[in-house]
Amino acid sequence: MTKEPRGAVARHTYWQSLPHGERQGVWCIQINQPGWPSGGLNDVEETEEHQPTVLARRTPEGKQQRCGACLGCDWEGPDHRRLNDAIEDANDHAFPDWRNMPSVLPPPPYGDRQRWLENVAKAYPPGWFQRGGPIITMREESNGLHWAMRAPGGGYDIASPHQRPKKEVASTAVQDSLLDQLR
C-alpha cells in the first residue's frame, strides 16, 4: 500500500489518481467544501495563502471521518466525526482570530444587500473577507450548521452560538441596534 501524501491538495490529487474501487478509506476534499473541483474531476489548485477546507474519508467500518485542512500548506487537523468541528479547526489554522469576530444577523431576504455588506464589512477587520475569512451569523434555521463558501468573500458562514431572535419585533430591534453600532 502506498503511503498517502499530506495536505489537502496532495491528498485530493492522490485520491483522484486511484481507480474508483480503491478510494475507500483515502482522504480527499469533502464535496462542496472549498477546493473541491467542479464535478470532482478537475485539478485542485493550491493557494498561496492559508485557506480552510475539510478532508473526508469513510473508514472500512463505514464511519465518516473528517479533518480540517488548508489549501495553502500541508496542515491537517485531528480527525472528527462532526463536520462543524473540522471546519472550526481549519478556520483556527487559517484565521486564528475568527472566534473574536462579532456575530451578525444574516442578510435580509428582501432588502438592501449592499447596505448589509457595507455594514458587516465595518464590523470585521479591513481585508478580512477579501482574504476568505469567515463570517459568524445568528441564524434560527441553520440547526447550528456551518456553511462553506457563504461568507461575503467566499469563506465559511459559521453559525453563531447565539440564535437569532424568533420574534419579528425583536429581530428588527436587534438589526437596528447592530446597524447603529456599525455606523
Rank of each mutant, 00 (worst) to 15 (best):
P52K: 00
E45T: 10
L71A: 06
G35Y: 07
L71G: 04
L41G: 08
N42R: 14
G40V: 06
W75Q: 00
E61T: 11
Q51Y: 09
C73W: 02
A86S: 15
H20Q: 15
R11I: 03
G72P: 08
D85V: 05
C73S: 05
L18V: 12
H12L: 08
W15H: 02
V54Y: 10
G68P: 10
Y14I: 12
K63I: 15
R23L: 08
I87T: 04
R57Y: 10
D79F: 15
V54S: 04
L55T: 05
R57C: 15
H50K: 14
E61Y: 09
G40K: 00
G21F: 08
G25K: 01
T53D: 13
I31W: 06
T47L: 15
R23M: 03
Q30F: 08
G72L: 07
R57L: 14
R23H: 02
D74F: 02
N32G: 13
P52F: 05
A56G: 09
E22C: 12
N32T: 13
H20W: 15
D43R: 14
P37Y: 01
H80G: 00
G39N: 03
R58G: 01
G77R: 07
I87A: 07
E46T: 13
D79T: 07
Q30V: 03
P34E: 01
G72N: 04
W27G: 08
G40M: 00
N84P: 08
Q30Y: 05
E22W: 10
E61R: 09
I31F: 04
K63T: 15
Y14P: 04
E61K: 10
E45Q: 10
D79K: 05
E45D: 05
C70V: 09
N42Q: 09
G72S: 06
A86P: 11
E46H: 11
V54G: 01
A69E: 14
A69N: 13
G35L: 11
N84F: 05
E61P: 03
C28T: 07
S17W: 01
G40W: 07
V44L: 12
C67F: 06
C28K: 06
T59G: 05
W36Y: 13
G25F: 10
W36P: 02
D85S: 14
G21M: 09
C73P: 09
V54T: 08
R11D: 03
W15D: 00
P60I: 09
E48Y: 03
S38L: 14
G40E: 05
L71C: 04
W36E: 00
T13E: 15
V44G: 11
I87C: 10
K63H: 15
L55K: 02
A86C: 10
L55M: 14
R81T: 15
T13W: 09
H20M: 13
R11M: 10
H20C: 11
R58N: 03
Q33G: 00
R23T: 02
I87G: 04
H12C: 02
L55S: 02
I29T: 01
